[in-house]
Write a protein that binds this DNA or RNA. Sequence first.
DNA 1: ACACTGTCGCTAATGACATTAGCCTACTGG
DNA 2: CCAGTAGGCTAATGTCATTAGCGACAGTGT
Lengths: 187, 187
Amino acid sequence: MPRAGLSPDAVVDAAVAVVDDGGPGALTLAAVAGRVGVATPSLYKHVRNLAELRHLVTSRVLEEIADRVAEAALGRSGDDAVRALMRAYRSYVVEHPARYGAMEQAAAPEGDAAAERLLGILYGALRGYELEGADLVHAARCLRSAVHGFAVLEAAGGFGLPADLEASYELLITVVTGGLSGPRRVA
Amino acid sequence: MPRAGLSPDAVVDAAVAVVDDGGPGALTLAAVAGRVGVATPSLYKHVRNLAELRHLVTSRVLEEIADRVAEAALGRSGDDAVRALMRAYRSYVVEHPARYGAMEQAAAPEGDAAAERLLGILYGALRGYELEGADLVHAARCLRSAVHGFAVLEAAGGFGLPADLEASYELLITVVTGGLSGPRRVA
DNA sequence: ACACTGTCGCTAATGACATTAGCCTACTGG
DNA sequence: CCAGTAGGCTAATGTCATTAGCGACAGTGT
């Protein structure tokens, strides 16, 4: 038997592919093994178990989002940065709804590097608003809620007709930028 | 063997209880059967399968949220109504995070009555803003995104420290009400 | 009282998965 | 060339969902 030449990364690649066709529910070790042409137990040489594989998948997805969002926000600041970030975020979800949905099954591990990075980018985009301490934290949470909420609903088909989703999202962007840049200090 | 006196509703009750302790991942037919003191296959007399049970659970949760939110918004209008609605929504999530999380595994069936009702309440709360047609739809989507996004993140422990979540949510309320009542027509 | 019928619960069996144990062999460094 | 390890495999176990088929109990109409 020739070696399959697997690696943890290759397993995650395959897992992502499985999710892409078939949706989050299709992510099983059997499916991944089948895709890379290996018996199911062989995967355990590269991945601790299904739970870990799921975490690796969400880390991968977070990395991809962070890459895209970082590039979009690069060289921008204030409302402009937040707008670009939000649009880039959604563009990922629109392109890979199944991947985004896959994250629901395994939250990012505490202290996950990709999650931290994405969060950092988000804080960076808010820098232009000159928020301090707790206010900055609150603003970041609002931004996350808005972006993630829309993403989850759209990825899951939670909105009725897909029509005009762009316009809805533009409104959300307006609401968020308007609300976070305007009224400081809400307590 | 004395009858257990089950019914679809009773099965959903038990399923919700299973989710409450144990989290969404603990929802299995075996666990539900054990809780009501019945063999697993007996559940099929009341529920088509696990997928349907999950849907029934999400309908139940949506009903509970709709009840709470409807009462909160009753007799209020405009920003006041939206504020009350948002606070009531989150209060449910804080009390029953596992139930809320359980909805991720089974989106509301197309045309689900509870989902429609909740959506209707939401539209009702926005009535005070005098939005028309597409603008109203966009506003509703923004409201849903914000509320659901925050809820998902909080229920999943997605925010770091739980500290000050109240303040963060109040900011979100301010952002949403400010953004939706102010600038009509964003196109 | 009594048979009748359908409802509801049970046991047995099947099949998909995850996971573990233990074996065997292809590479890799000396 | 040789040894050791990494990476694959088969076999076995346990949990679950799901289906099939069996029996008992409750309510109905006589």
